[in-house]
């Protein structure tokens, strides 16, 4: 306690600087968290949040008893790992190229163009996917036909969809993520590169021994940040591409789409909150574990 007071006095300016943000989160994020209690009630309008009947873990039953919780969790985690790892790697590669190659105009245009998919809503992405892969006038099947090859009915097979989904997810986030790495590269002091050049290092050596090590903290940070949401799927992505097509669920169903469909019949705020709580706890446990390991090995890479 005395330590806290001493710190408050000592760093009072910094506390003042951070205070607005802390107040913001207390009000807009922590206050509404009382709503987590919905997960344990049978909601009624008469009772409201605290007056409704307490029913313990009942709202979680629909997740557990369906028997698909494990496969849903697995699907969600695997998809997110693919998005996070592949996405970050590709963004990293693009950022390094953009930072190093000559040609100002080319670089500027490329960067802007890479950002375009970010603006395309998932509704339109869904429409694109259908236009590419459907069996009647889909672009791919038309091409196959023109080449004299047999068509392929994408909507009758589950296997290609994993790749399609991963592709579009990475495609959409590419420009966004690249900027983060680009900004990180820009913050690396020029003197490192100058020194390396004088030592006679070629471009690959410079990237390997300067750029990449300097980007590792950012890379680790972005991965860590994403891990917390490992059980939260990109609902729009899956819903707009797969929709309610039960044919494809086997390899494309994630927790968010599952919960959405569950509650579409009979919306229940308690069950919705319960599902969210499961996702949050899973993410929290994962982040705390990974952060702990990182903290033990490289303290300055840790998130907190």
């Amino acid at each position: 306690m005395r330590r806290l007071v001493a710190e408050l006095v000592h760093n009072r300016v910094m506390f003042l600087m951070i205070a607005p943000t802390l107040i913001f989160f207390s009000v807009f994020a922590y206050l509404p968290m009382v709503g987590i209690y919905y997960a344990f009630t049978n909601f009624s309008f008469e009772g409201g949040l605290f007056g409704s009947e307490f029913i313990g873990w009942q709202n979680f039953r629909f997740l557990v008893e369906s028997g698909s919780l494990w496969s849903l969790t697995k699907n969600t985690v695997l998809y997110n790992l693919a998005f996070i790892l592949l996405g970050n790697l590709l963004q990293l590669v693009c950022a390094i190229f953009l930072a190093e190659i000559p040609g100002k105009l080319f670089k500027k245009t490329t960067q802007s163009v890479m950002f375009l998919p970010y603006f395309i809503s998932f509704v339109l992405v869904g429409a694109f996917v259908f236009n590419l892969f459907n069996s009647e006038n889909g672009v791919i099947n038309t091409l196959l036909q023109q080449l004299g090859l047999p068509g392929y009915d994408f909507y009758m097979h589950t296997s290609p969809w994993k790749y399609i989904i991963v592709f579009f997810s990475i495609w959409k986030g590419l420009g966004y993520g690249t900027i983060i790495y680009l900004a990180a590269i820009m913050s690396i002091g020029d003197e490192y590169y100058e020194a390396a050049k004088i030592d006679g290092a070629n471009i690959f050596q410079r990237i390997r021994s300067i750029t990449i090590p300097m980007l590792v903290p950012t890379f680790v940070l972005l991965i860590l940040l994403s891990l917390g949401g490992i059980l939260k799927g990109q609902f729009d992505l899956f819903y707009q591409i797969i929709g309610n097509n039960g044919m494809l669920f086997e390899s494309t169903d994630i927790i968010d789409t599952y919960v959405y469909r569950s509650l579409a019949v009979n919306f229940d705020i308690g069950m919705g909150t319960a599902a969210g709580l499961y996702q949050s706890f899973f993410g929290l446990a994962l982040v705390l574990t990974v952060n702990y390991i990182i903290r033990k090995t490289r303290e300055d890479y840790a998130l907190f």
Partner: peptide, 20 residues
């Protein structure tokens, strides 16, 4: 940092936020 990061993990959902 944890106090801030925690808000990305847990949320009270739409309804309490709306009421607030």
């Amino acid at each position: 940092s944890f106090f801030i990061y925690f808000t990305t993990l847990f949320s009270g959902g739409l309804i309490p936020w709306y009421i607030l």
